[in-house]
Structures are given as structure tokens and as C-alpha cells.
């Protein structure tokens, strides 16, 4: 049915959704909320957009792609993240007497949600016979090559000994493509690390 959507003239209409939260898992974003106690709210429009401060009137006017979650069916919404980063806006809505969908101003809005690039990193150990050392071959694989430049700056590997970090090393483009090998002491291990401030962008899978 081709419904007509209008923006509620009252931006503060008390129809807000409550207890909004969101989580990410394998580039799948899940939004959850509670419906208001009042039954006027019949459904929520979920917008996914890339603006820092999205203009809801413009989104409605331009028929920005959105999902509709009816109240009676669910209080959650899940979507795969396709863009590098996006925000989700939830706008409560109801039918007026003309059966027009009146969309309220977004009650809740997520923070930036980033699509995470999967990084497969592996250290393969090979002991040196009768020695106190072992050879380590490093392997790093990234599916999304567009983020390689960024990854170089945030991916490191640590040499650990008794659980403590002995040293940290970074990569460059060349060593990321062909990490190579080195010898470490028998009791030492290797741990790959994504820098704290980039962990929302990379999904490090360490084997």
C-alpha cells in the first residue's frame, strides 16, 4: 500500500521509545527498545543514514529507504551493516484520522556504527631442535583491501613472555603482505593487537 507519510508537527510529542540499545556482532547491528505505554504509537520507522545530524523531514520527503517495525510484532530490529559507517534513527509513528502515517521526530538515534573489516592473523611456531629458540612465521590476511592503509597504522604484534609483553612491533605495507619470520625464545609467544581506538573498525581473528 502506498501510504503517505507526514512529519509530526509537534516535535516533542510524548511518544518516545524507551530503553534503546544497540549491539554489533559480525557486522550485524541489532537495535532493541521498549514501546511507550501509550498505545497510540503503532510502529516505528528505522532509518539508516550517514549524516552526522540527519534531518528527519528531509529523509521523509526524499523517501529515504527505511524499515517499518510494527508495534505488535517486535521491539527489535536487526540489519547487516553495508556502509563503512552509519547511524540508525528510530521514529515512532501513528495513523491520523485520514489514515496518513504521522512520523514523529526520532526518539532515539544510535552512535556511529562502523562496518568492521575482518583481519585473520596467525603465528605459526616451529621449534628449533635442541635449541632455546623457536621460529615463528607470521601470516596476516585481510578481506577488505580498502582498509589496508589504515590497518598498517593500527595492527601490531607483541612478543609475550610469561603473559607479559616484551616488545611490540608494527607493520608496513610490505610486511603486511609478506610478514615473514623471526626467532623467539621457546617460552615466548606472539599476540596480534588492533589499537584500541580502531577496534570498532577491525574484527581481529587471531588463530
Amino acid at each position: 500500500m502506498n501510504r503517505q507519510y507526514v512529519l509530526s508537527p509537534e516535535p516533542n510529542l510524548a511518544m518516545g521509545l524507551r530503553n534503546f540499545s544497540w549491539r554489533m556482532h559480525s557486522n550485524q547491528a541489532t537495535l532493541e527498545w521498549d514501546w511507550p505505554i501509550e498505545r497510540d504509537t503503532r510502529f516505528a520507522l528505522v532509518f539508516e543514514c550517514e549524516d552526522e545530524n540527519p534531518d528527519i523531514a528531509k529523509l521523509i520527503e526524499e523517501k529515504h529507504p527505511h524499515e517499518i517495525v510494527p508495534r505488535d510484532l517486535s521491539s527489535q530490529f536487526a540489519a547487516a551493516i553495508t556502509r563503512d559507517r552509519c547511524k540508525f534513527l528510530l521514529s515512532p509513528a501513528y495513523f491520523d484520522e485520514n489514515n496518513t502515517v504521522v512520523v514523529c521526530h526520532p526518539t532515539v538515534q544510535s552512535d556511529w556504527i562502523y562496518k568492521r573489516a575482518v583481519v585473520d592473523a596467525r603465528a605459526v611456531y616451529k621449534p628449533v631442535t635442541l635449541g632455546q629458540y623457536k621460529r615463528v612465521d607470521l601470516h596476516v590476511k585481510v578481506k577488505d583491501s580498502s582498509r589496508l592503509d589504515h590497518l598498517i597504522t593500527v595492527l601490531t604484534y607483541d612478543v609475550l613472555e610469561n603473559g607479559g609483553r616484551v616488545a611490540t612491533y608494527s607493520f608496513d605495507e610490505q610486511s603486511l603482505a609478506e610478514p615473514g619470520h623471526m626467532y623467539i625464545k621457546k617460552e615466548q609467544t606472539i599476540r596480534f593487537t588492533i589499537r584500541e581506538d580502531a577496534r570498532h573498525l577491525f574484527d581481529l581473528k587471531q588463530h
Binding site: 615463528v136 607470521l138 612478543v159 616484551v166 616488545a167 612491533y169 609478506e178 615473514g180 619470520h181 623471526m182
Partner: peptide, 11 residues
């Protein structure tokens, strides 16, 4: 040198 020898290098 101990630190440097922790840098992975190709064959």
C-alpha cells in the same frame, strides 16, 4: 639487537 631481532623478515 634483542628488539630488532623480534622484527619479522622475509627469507
Amino acid at each position: 639487537m634483542e628488539y630488532l631481532m623480534g622484527m619479522a623478515i622475509p627469507e
